Amino acid sequence: MEKGLFHDLYKRLNTLDVRSYSPDQLSGLLHGYLTVYSMVRVYPWLEADFGLPVDIHERAKAIARVFLGQLGNKDVPVDTRAGYVADVMDVYQVYSDLGYLDSGVDAAYGILSSRDNGRIALPCRTPNVCRLLCNCYYFAGDEECGELAGRLVTEALGYIRGSDRGDLLAWWDAICLYDDTVGAMKLSQVEQERLDGERARLRVSVEREEDAMIERFRQAGVDADAGMATGVFYILARREFERCNGKK
C-alpha cells in the first residue's frame, strides 16, 4: 500500500513547479528527491519508475536554487535559514558542485557567528542548527562544530527520553546525520554503542509518528497541504530505499 502511495505521490509532485511552493515547504521534497536519486543510482532498473538520475538531479538543484536565494535574507528567522543552508550543503553530497558547498559554508559561518574569543555562538539549539554543525564538521573539518553538535544531540535525547517529543522527526534526521558524519569519526566504541542503543529505541517512536503522519495525509487526500505532502514524500522515499536495500 505504501509503495503505491509513494509512486502516486512522486508522479504528482513531479508535475508541480517548485517555485509555487514557499521555501519552508521544500526541505522534505528536496530530501525525497535526493533519496530517489541515490536509489536509482544504486538500482538502475528503477529508472523505469522514477526517470533518469540527471532529471531527478535537476529537480533537486531547482529546489537548492530557491534556498540559495534565501541564505542572506535576514527577514527569514535564523533557525529557518540554518535549515536552508544545511539543505544546500546536503545537495553537494550527491552533486559535487563546489558552488553549492562554498555558498553553504559561507552562509553557515555567517549564522554561527563567532564571539570575541573566536568561539562559535549558537543562534538557537534546534535540529536545523545541529544539522548545520554536522555539515561544518564534515565539510570544513571543524572540530568545535562536531563537539557542539554532540552536545545538542545529547540534550535532545535527554528531553525525548523525558517524553518531550516535540520536533521528534526533525531531531531524528539530525541525530542520524550526526551519527553518520561526526559520530563515525569522533565517538569511542562505548559511546557509539550507547548512541546505537538510543537510535534503536527512538526508531520505534519515530516510525509510529511517521505512520500517523502518513495516515493523516491519506485522510486529507487532495486537501492535504504542501508541507504535509512533501514531508510524507520524504518518509516514503526513505522507506522505499530501505525496502530495496533489504532485497540485496
Rank of each mutant, 00 (worst) to 15 (best):
I63V: 14
L133H: 03
M185A: 15
T80F: 01
E143N: 05
D225L: 04
A48C: 07
Y92T: 06
K248N: 13
G118P: 01
A184G: 02
I175E: 04
C145M: 03
Y137H: 13
P23D: 10
A174D: 03
D106A: 13
R203L: 14
T80G: 00
D17E: 11
L68Q: 12
D142T: 02
S96K: 14
I235V: 15
Q219N: 11
L46V: 01
L202D: 05
S114Q: 13
Y33D: 12
G72V: 03
L148C: 04
A174C: 01
R115P: 01
P127E: 04
G197Y: 02
D55Y: 07
G183C: 06
M185D: 15
L202S: 06
V40T: 08
A82P: 00
G231P: 00
T126Y: 01
Y92C: 01
L187C: 08
P123C: 07
C134F: 02
D164N: 15
E242T: 08
G158I: 02
R243Y: 07
V66I: 15
V129N: 06
G69A: 10
Q70Y: 05
G221C: 03
R208D: 14
L68C: 10
S20V: 04
V105H: 03
Y37I: 05
D211H: 09
H57C: 12
R208I: 12
D24T: 11
G221S: 00
G146Y: 04
V85H: 07
P123R: 09
E58Y: 08
L29N: 05
W171Q: 07
Y137D: 06
L46R: 07
E240M: 14
V18W: 08
L236S: 05
D167Q: 15
V206S: 04
I214E: 01
E193I: 06
R125K: 13
A237D: 02
L46Y: 00
L112W: 00
A174T: 03
T154W: 05
S20F: 04
D180R: 14
L236W: 03
E215Y: 03
C136Q: 06
N135G: 04
I111R: 10
V232Q: 04
V190L: 13
D179K: 13
N73Y: 02
R243H: 11
N117T: 05
G158M: 06
C244M: 15
K11F: 10
Y234R: 15
E2P: 02
Y159G: 01
I63Y: 08
A140M: 09
Y92M: 02
G28S: 09
Q189R: 14
R194K: 14
G69V: 02
Y37H: 14
A156W: 00
K61H: 03
V94D: 14
T181V: 06
E47F: 04
K247V: 12
R161K: 13
D106W: 01
I214P: 00
R243M: 10
G166I: 08
L148K: 13
S38G: 12
R41C: 12
F139C: 04
R41P: 00
L26D: 11
L9C: 09
E209M: 11
G158P: 02
I160S: 09
G231R: 15
Q189W: 07
A64I: 01
G158N: 12
I120Y: 09
Y95V: 13
A121G: 10
R161E: 13
L9D: 03
D79G: 00
L168Q: 03
P44H: 07
